[in-house]
């Protein structure tokens, strides 16, 4: 739902790195985004295409890696990955606890790298 402001941030960061690296054309941008985010890949690409018109990033493809959600069981210390649909229903695979977990992964929002000419 907030793909637009997020995409603006991505473009700003990419253009900063493009200028620093004397890039003439950005080919692709790789993002690491946690499974917990509700960003829609298609909308991000759509906004990116729109915002990047006339910049060196025009035409760049967004490659989105989804980073799995992982919880740590505060009872036994075990870290385990879960599906988003299981987030409020999970059981610790090690000690079978059904509560007291901390989120250790799934909220990432990173630009990893870009390919450029």
């Amino acid at each position: 739902m907030h793909e637009l402001p997020i995409t603006e941030n991505i473009l700003t960061i990419v253009l900063k790195h493009a200028a620093a690296g004397h890039v003439r054309q950005v080919v692709s941008i790789t993002l690491d985004i946690g499974e917990l985010s509700d960003l829609e890949d298609e909308w991000m690409q759509h906004y990116f295409d729109y915002l990047s018109k006339g910049t060196v990033a025009e035409g760049a493809k967004l490659k989105i890696n989804r980073i799995p959600i992982a919880l740590r069981c505060n009872g036994c210390g075990k870290t385990f990955e879960i599906e988003k649909s299981m987030i409020g229903k999970s059981t610790c695979p090690s000690c079978q606890a059904t509560g007291d977990f901390s989120l250790v992964s799934g909220r990432q929002y990173h630009i990893k790298e870009m390919e450029a000419k």
Binding site: I6, N9, I10, V23, I111, E113, E115, A116
Partner: peptide
């Protein structure tokens, strides 16, 4: 053809707001 190079960015997208 220009050679394609890989540029590491490693920045959080939400940094400014954070």
């Amino acid at each position: 053809m220009d050679e394609i190079k890989l540029i590491e960015i490693k920045e959080s997208i939400l940094t400014d707001n954070d």
